[in-house]
Write a protein that binds this DNA or RNA. Structure first.
Lengths: 205, 205
DNA sequence: AAACTTAATTAACGGTGTTAAGTAAACAAA
DNA sequence: TTTGTTTACTTAACACCGTTAATTAAGTTT
C-alpha cells in the first residue's frame, strides 16, 4: 500500500507541475500563446502526456482559473478589517480593479473566456471559489441595507449591478474599448473615479 | 473607362458577398465556427480567394463589427423622440441590453473579442460608428446634468460608469457568469432590474 | 496572333487540440 | 528467474486553423 500511495503522490506532483507551468505561461507570454504543445515543451514532456493527467485543455484552464480565484480571495482577506459596509464594498471594488489590471491574463480566464465555464458546466456543480466571492458581495450589500447605509432594494439586483460595473470597467479596459473615451494615461484614474462615483450614488441620502 | 468601372463594381459586390455570408455564419453557427475556410465554402470560392479582397481575417471581422454598430444605431433612432434625458438614457440602456441578448455573436465581436480592435489600432484612426454611440451617451448625460436631473459630475466618469454597467451585464450574461447569481429564467428580468436601479440612483434627489 | 494583366486556383507551411497505436520500463505471478 | 501484465510515456496521425507562394486559366491589349 505504501507504493501505491507514493505513486498517487507522484501523479499529483506532475499534475501540479503542469498547472504551475501553464500559469507561468499565462503571465509571461499571454493567454493566447498557451497551447498544449507549449506547456508540454516547458515541462519537457510530450504533448500527449498532458492528456494522461487532464481530460482536455479546458480542464487545465479551469484549474488555472481556480488558482486565479484563490489569488483574488487572498487579496481580499484584509477586507475583514473594515467594518463599515460601504467602505468595505469600496475597497472590494478597488481590489477588483487592481486585480484585473495587474493580472489581465488571469482575469480573462476567470471572467471573459468561455472555455473554463464549458468545463464547469460539464461538471455540473461546484465552483466554490467563484461562489465564495459572490456571496461575500451579497453579504456586504445586505449588511449595508440592514444598517440603513444603502438604499434598500433586492440584494441580487444591486449585487449584479455593482459586479457588472466593475467587471465592465476591467473587461472594457482589457479589450481596449476605453481608449476612445479616455487617454491611456488617464484610464486607470477614470476607472477608479467611476467606482467612486458609484459608491457615492449608492449611499443613502 | 466603362469597363474598369464595372470591374470595380464587381469587386465591391464580391467583397459584400463575403461579408454577408460571414455575418450569416455568425448568427447561424456562432462566432467560434467562423473560419476563412468555412466562409469560402459558403460562397463557393477557394479559401485563398478571400485574401484577394481582404488583407486578413481581422479585416473581415472588423467590417462585420462595423455592420453590428450600424444595426445598433438604427435600433437607437427612435431615441430622438424621447426628450427627457433620463428617460432617453434609460431607453438607450434597454436597447443596449436587448441588442446584446438578441445578437450575442455580434456583441461578442463588437465589445469582447480583441481581433477587430487589433485591426482598428493598425489603421490608426476612424471607427466612426463606435465613436458615434459613445458621443450620444455623453451628450445625453451632459443634457441631464444641465437640466439638473442628474447629480453633477465629470461627464467621462459617469459615461464610463453607465456604459461599464450595461456592458458588464451583457458580457457576464453572454459568458455564462451570471448563472450562479440568478436562475436562467430570471436573468433577463434581473438585468433590466439592475439597469432600472442604476437609473433610479442616478437621478438627482 | 502574341504579349500582358487579372482572377482564381492548388499546394504547401507551420500551427492547433486530440486520439490511436506502439514502446520500454516496472511490477507480479509462475 | 522467467513469464505475463500493468504503467508511463512517446511517436504517428487526423482534422482542423490562418496564411503565403507558385500556378493555371481567362480576358484584354497591342
Amino acid at each position: 500500500m505504501g507504493i501505491v500511495a507514493r505513486k498517487e503522490q507522484q501523479k499529483k506532483e506532475i499534475r501540479q507541475l503542469i498547472l504551475d507551468h501553464s500559469m507561468k505561461l499565462f503571465v509571461e507570454e499571454g493567454f493566447s500563446h498557451v497551447s498544449m504543445r507549449r506547456i508540454a515543451e516547458r515541462i519537457q514532456y510530450s504533448p500527449t502526456t498532458l492528456y494522461l493527467y487532464f481530460k482536455d485543455k479546458n480542464e487545465i484552464l479551469f484549474h488555472c482559473c481556480e488558482s486565479g480565484f484563490k489569488m483574488m480571495l487572498t487579496a481580499n482577506i484584509s477586507l475583514s478589517l473594515i467594518s463599515n459596509p460601504i467602505d468595505r464594498l469600496h475597497q472590494m471594488g478597488k481590489n477588483y480593479l487592481q486585480f484585473g489590471l495587474e493580472y489581465p491574463e488571469f482575469y480573462d480566464l476567470m471572467f471573459i473566456q468561455e472555455a473554463p465555464m464549458d468545463r464547469l458546466i460539464q461538471m455540473g456543480e461546484g465552483w466554490s471559489s467563484g461562489d465564495q466571492s459572490l456571496n461575500a458581495l451579497k453579504i456586504i450589500i445586505q449588511d449595508g441595507m440592514d444598517q440603513g447605509l444603502i438604499v434598500p432594494a433586492k440584494v441580487e439586483t444591486v449585487a449584479m449591478a455593482v459586479w457588472s460595473m466593475v467587471h465592465g470597467l476591467v473587461s472594457l479596459a482589457i479589450r481596449k474599448r476605453l481608449d476612445k473615451l479616455v487617454s491611456p494615461a488617464d484610464m486607470e484614474q477614470t476607472m477608479h473615479d467611476s467606482l467612486d462615483w458609484l459608491l457615492k450614488t449608492l449611499k443613502k441620502a
